[in-house]
Amino acid sequence: MADLRAGLIGLGAMGRHHARVLRETPGVELVAVADPGGDPFGVSGGLEVLPDVDALIGAGIDMAVVAVPTIYHEQVGLALAAAGVHTLVEKPIAATSEAGRKVAEAFESAGLVGCVGHIERFNPALQELRRRMESGELGEVYQIATRRQGPFPSRIADVGVVKDLGTHDIDLTAWVAQSTYTSVAAQTAHRSGRPHEDMVIATGRLANGVIVNHVVNWLSPMKERVTIVTGERGAFVADTGSADLTFYANGDIATEWEAISTFRGVSEGDVVRYAFPKREPLRVEHEAFRDAVLGVRHDVVTMREGLRTLEVAEAALESAARGVTVEV
């Protein structure tokens, strides 16, 4: 079988990584790249840098990766859907849920593979975490808390921290819990002089009763990417920066300290850091996209799921603006 002909639009900070991985993915050939701003990182590899999505489509591609700024996702996505090109759009699916709905419906009605680049789902620590949760190792799940903070990325100019970073945590939380958000309440702050929010603290509840909490900002000198899932048997801590997964077990040794013996909570138990294969998440994501196009398997983040994540993010922004809890 001939390799799938792939195109890439957007050769910026994320596009350069997509270019590398597309070239390294078996069964895929990168045949065309496009960016009206040129090739700042020199990743075209001898390919002509095309000016727009129409020229990319004209190169005769089977599949495409969209890594342009969020405000252009709708325009580029709709053009690719109309041309019959299977597409992976970087997250978020679009600048607004209204635009995202148009993109999702276009790919669904055309019978095309349309997916969103929520790359954290393909992080080995989170994949191992979900596998162990599915096998019942944690028992009933009570709470999921995430922390995602670090310095401001100068490449982001068209959305705030909720739609850029916060959508990672919204998607991965719903995915590991295998449940959807029913409500969200949030507080945001603008501290850096930019038009969009750069800090958010959000709480919410999922349909299965799990309560969630997200701390996200662009104003911390300390970079942190942590997901903590607490349940009846202990807590999993996934560090997606290092791809480590640690389990903190509830202890089963009774305390002899009278002052705290009446407390009906849990005690400290064993701590285990798991060993498992750690593959680059972007590579795993591209293989899932390729296999979905080939009809081999379908574990990509669908555009409908990407739309749901964006709706939750917008509900968080609405909550912060109105000072109320918003039902999703």
Rank of each mutant, 00 (worst) to 15 (best):
R205Q: 07
V312Y: 04
K223P: 10
L126V: 08
L206N: 01
D291P: 06
E24N: 06
V85S: 08
G269H: 09
A110R: 14
A67R: 05
I93S: 02
A79P: 10
E232I: 11
A6Y: 05
S97F: 01
R155W: 08
V176C: 02
D239F: 05
V65G: 10
R308K: 09
R191K: 10
V272R: 15
P69R: 04
M303I: 02
E280W: 08
R290A: 04
E128W: 01
R279P: 03
P151L: 00
E268H: 11
W218A: 07
V229E: 07
V226T: 15
T87A: 00
A189Y: 11
A157L: 09
E280C: 06
G42V: 05
H18W: 12
P221V: 03
N217V: 02
E140T: 14
R132K: 13
D3R: 13
G42P: 06
L8M: 12
E256N: 14
G234K: 07
R155G: 02
I57A: 08
G204F: 02
V49P: 08
G27A: 09
E258F: 11
Y142D: 12
H196S: 07
G60I: 06
A320S: 14
D35T: 11
G231D: 12
R5D: 14
V161I: 05
V76P: 10
R308W: 00
A81M: 10
N213L: 14
P51S: 14
A254Q: 11
R155N: 10
A292R: 02
R304K: 14
E327R: 13
G60R: 02
R290Y: 01
E258L: 07
A288F: 05
L138F: 07
A189R: 14
V184T: 07
V53D: 05
T325P: 07
F289D: 02
R194A: 06
F247S: 03
T25S: 02
S267E: 10
G77S: 09
P124L: 08
I228P: 01
A34Y: 05
V159S: 03
E134C: 08
V33C: 06
E268V: 10
P40W: 08
V284G: 04
A186I: 03
W175D: 07
S135T: 15
T262Y: 09
M133N: 04
R308E: 00
E128Q: 14
V215P: 01
R20F: 05
V215C: 10
I156H: 02
P92G: 11
V33Y: 07
A34H: 12
S179P: 12
T146A: 11
A34F: 06
V229A: 15
A82K: 15
V271N: 03
L126E: 00
A259E: 15
I201F: 14
C115S: 09
R131I: 01
A254D: 15
E105H: 12
N208K: 03
T309S: 09
G117D: 01
P153T: 05
R308H: 04
E258A: 13
A104W: 03
S179K: 10
D52G: 13
V328C: 00
L11Q: 02
V116K: 06
S183K: 13
E311Q: 15
V161D: 03
G15D: 00
Q187P: 08
E232K: 15
V49K: 10
R322G: 01
V271K: 15
G38H: 11
A259V: 13
E90L: 05
V33P: 04
M222Y: 13
A99R: 11
Q187E: 13
A81P: 09
M303E: 02
Q187D: 11
